[in-house]
Amino acid sequence: MQLCSLYRFPLKSGSAELLDEGWCDELGLYGDRRWMVVDAATGKFLTQRVLPRMALLAARWQGDTRLLLSAPGMDGLLVPVPGPESVARGVLIWRESLQASDAGDAAAAWLTQLLDRPCRLVHLPNAKGIQIDQDYARVGERTAFSDGFPFLLIGQRSLDDLSARVGQLLDMRRFRPNLVIAGSAPYAEDSWRRIRIGDMEFRVVKPCSRCIIPTIDPLNAERDASREPLATLMNYRKGDGGVFFGQNLIGEGTGKLRVGMPVEVLE
């Protein structure tokens, strides 16, 4: 088995960035989901669940100090990483309330125009990571603006099997994983408890319950009228608490990942 794809999402619910290699830090893949769009009035996080157009919103790191925002029909905008003097904004992601750094009025105006609702862009410094649910994590283990865990893993053959059941080739980016594994049997990842990729070890802590986002085509931001592939997943991947596809992981320590690295199941 090997790591066959590595994805980063600099902006929560923005488009995927395909990497050849990446560093894993204390919050997950370096630069992953460190930015988030929030409602300007309430601070509540915004995603493709209610704003499918976010699938076409690209956010790409320019070194470590700036983010480039781009989208169809919009001029690109360079956004500096907020400094210590930036405004702290109260934000809400699921049930977690925290303070994040506001990225300024220019970014807010750009996103408000794109998404047609008042919003702000916020950034999460490494020092302000979010404690992972302690039912699955140790005290001090943190993530960024993910839906709960630092890494999401899917086996390529799991997607191949789902595509065959749906009757169309599905884009892996619908499911927004960080790590895609080649060479394992379909859904083999369901039984893994601990793995090693290169020199990095990961705990496999929880199946990923799926929302409506996989029904959105990442190429055109359109929802599937038949609610595929979620409708098919409901037939054979439904369990207590939702419909599951992929596994959430927590990394142990820091290190580099590179496409082509061997994957070993330790437990």
Rank of each mutant, 00 (worst) to 15 (best):
G76H: 10
A137E: 11
M200S: 15
D199C: 09
Y30D: 10
T65V: 03
A107W: 04
G22K: 01
V37K: 05
P80M: 09
D133L: 01
L27S: 13
I250P: 08
Q134H: 10
W35D: 06
R95A: 07
A58H: 15
G155L: 00
C4M: 08
G140P: 05
F175Q: 09
G104N: 11
V50L: 03
D133M: 03
E264R: 15
D102H: 13
Q247I: 05
A16R: 07
I130R: 15
Y30G: 03
Q134C: 13
M36G: 05
F145L: 15
L114H: 05
A221S: 05
I93V: 11
K206F: 05
G155C: 08
G246D: 04
S191V: 10
D105R: 11
L266H: 10
A106I: 03
P207G: 08
A16E: 09
V180F: 05
R227I: 01
V38S: 01
L11S: 10
P118L: 00
M200K: 13
F9C: 03
L257Y: 06
S97H: 10
R203Q: 06
E96I: 15
S184R: 10
Q48W: 12
G83W: 11
T47R: 03
D105E: 15
T254Y: 14
G129A: 04
F9P: 02
P186W: 08
P218Q: 04
T215G: 12
E267Y: 14
K256G: 05
Q2C: 05
K256S: 09
S13I: 02
I197E: 04
S70D: 10
F149V: 01
L98G: 01
D32G: 09
G129K: 04
T215F: 04
L121P: 04
R176C: 01
Q62Y: 08
P10E: 07
R33W: 02
V37P: 02
M1Y: 06
Q2K: 10
R53N: 08
R89A: 03
Y236C: 03
G22Y: 01
A40S: 12
W23V: 00
R142C: 10
P125I: 13
G63S: 13
D105K: 15
L27E: 12
W23D: 08
M74E: 14
L162I: 04
F245G: 08
M200Y: 12
I216S: 04
T65S: 12
Q131S: 12
L69D: 02
R194T: 05
I132W: 04
F245N: 09
Q156H: 13
E141K: 07
C211T: 12
K256Y: 03
L78R: 15
S163Y: 00
V50C: 00
G241Q: 14
L51A: 06
M54R: 03
E201I: 12
T112H: 11
G22S: 03
L27T: 13
G76E: 15
P150M: 01
D25L: 00
S13V: 05
A137T: 12
